[in-house]
Write a protein that binds this DNA or RNA. Structure first.
Lengths: 303, 303
DNA sequence: CCGGACCCTGAAAATACCTTTCAGAGGTGA
DNA sequence: TCACCTCTGAAAGGTATTTTCAGGGTCCGG
């Protein structure tokens, strides 16, 4: 008889509310109460045991199990699993507020979610906007450079250091300059085929433009990593790598997303160069890894 | 003892794969097998009973339960529920799966796509795995600190500097120490209510643990930002902020994704503190912005 | 108005599943 | 080599779920 309802029904994935409505008329009163509770608060019900749900709905365990059967599951256990899935789904769906700006009174959880979302967005934008032809040219230049100078100030200075660290690790001679004067005096030493990289989000940081200009005039290959390809820095750059510019606000300084973007570009450069010079890069990488091993206490962390 | 690891960890909703990676190193062999199976096929495992999963992984029920506990759930039942939720989520999410590792002969476009995807993943994992209660405690501590010392070496050193730069911008007295000796000698000066932060991916970097330990013994509030919450650094940390651990490979050193993760945590700390101290932070932020304005050439960049 | 059949319902027994305990195996350091 | 410690699975112990069963209600026909 009523077996015909549940017949070929596979364990419903998400269309549970609909199923409840469809089947409700064929349910007895107490079963309807159970179905209602389940459809109304999947998350809450998924946390309950059979006994709990029975008490909540003022029915018995047997009724709960019968309801689960009617909805197409082998038993309550499986209904509960489906409920948990449903709860997770609609929870992941409900995060539209993430796009809003960070407010002073946002909860920390909101802050975390928004920051993560924004940085993800920045990454996607940067990847989409990156000119692989330019990137390839830069990788070529770096792979063949006798010496690499990198200029960055403030937040971009850290990115410059990061790149320098990475390149050093694969055996290239790279140096990050934070001091503008030293940067210029060093830039004078550059020769053709050497590479100079300027990192500046605004594209207008004089302290970074100057050394790049010097390098440019000395005939070195110059690269600018900037969020403003129309900025002053570009006129001395043989190659341009554009970083994306996300919106900023009082609580979210530009330094934050520009840094993310710059780091992705820098990582791409690094991996590109590592690929190109794999023969020498791979041993160099493992060597630096080995060298560091003894600086870590092997006893900590089981196994 | 080991209770302290899972301390305030709430039943993670979706950050399971990340949690597995984070905790895997501290697991025993058989537990790793279980964790692997769970992370590899959440949907499939959610359909299995303890006994089933034990058989599948060639272990015992006890081991399965132990693994579930380690992952932060009260028992297997709850892990299974979470698994069902995860399965439902990723079924609806339809992850595009650029999951392949970076190869030597990948095109640059592939490299860019893979790096961007991985870093996005890292961000999501980190955000999901971040303990907001711990974060709140850290924000509190920072907001009320007389002085803040930050320790980081190598790649983590740049993150330490980044945090110091940011905190300085909102009027806090923060200093990043890269020199282990100076770090220790400075740590001696710390007093209760001051804050010391150690940043280390491995959780075992002696040069960073030592100053934190000194600070801890001087009664300062200590914070560890680490990818290995079971590492040696944790024993001297009042608060733990866990960064996510992405898989690494020859062409993708651990430093890369750990840095992304650490930076997100650092940003969250910063924004949290800025919110808390908005009255003083906001003017400080705009002041530093103004002060920098004249360092940029206003003529460059059209418009 | 009464009696009988049918089905809904929950209590309790039966089972399946999950958790805990315990002792042996395997490895590690002295 | 031995003592010690940790990991591991078998089996006991406890919950949760499922099944069974009988009481009570309702509806229909007489």
């Amino acid at each position: 008889m009523k077996e015909s309802f549940g017949h070929s029904a596979p364990p419903a994935p998400a269309a549970l509310a609909a199923k409840v409505r469809t089947l409700a008329p064929s349910m007895t009163r107490s079963m309807q109460r159970v179905a209602e509770a389940v459809a109304g608060d999947p998350a809450g019900c998924s946390a309950l045991t059979v006994t709990g749900l029975a008490e909540l709905t003022g029915t018995s365990e047997a009724t709960v199990v019968r309801t689960a059967r009617l909805l197409g599951y082998p038993g309550y256990r499986d209904l509960r699993l489906a409920l948990a899935g449903l709860a997770a789904q609609q929870e992941s769906g409900q995060s539209p507020a993430v796009t809003a700006d960070i407010a002073v009174d946002d909860s920390l959880a909101d802050v975390v979610a928004k920051l993560a979302y924004d940085e993800q967005q920045t990454l996607a934008d940067t990847a989409a906007g990156l000119d692989t032809a330019q990137l390839a040219a830069c990788v070529d230049a770096l792979a063949g450079a006798r010496r690499i100078d990198i200029y960055g100030i403030g937040a971009s200075g850290l990115v410059a250091q990061d790149l320098a660290q990475k390149l050093l690790r694969i055996g290239l001679i790279a140096h990050a300059h934070a001091d503008p004067h030293l940067a210029v005096t060093n830039a004078v030493q550059l020769r053709p085929r050497d590479v100079a990289i300027a990192i500046t989000h605004s594209g207008t940081t004089g302290d970074v433009i100057e050394p790049l200009r010097t390098a440019f005039e000395r005939g070195a290959i110059t690269i600018a990593v900037t969020g403003r390809p129309d900025g002053a820095v570009s006129q001395y750059a043989d190659h341009l790598l554009t970083t994306s510019t996300a919106r900023e606000s009082e609580l979210r300084p530009a330094a934050m997303s520009s840094r993310t973007s710059q780091l992705l570009v820098v990582d791409c450069l690094f991996v590109g160069v590592a690929q190109r010079t794999y023969e020498t890069a791979a041993p160099a990488l493992s060597a630096s890894y080995e060298a560091l091993a003894h600086r870590h206490d092997p006893r900590s962390g089981r196994r």
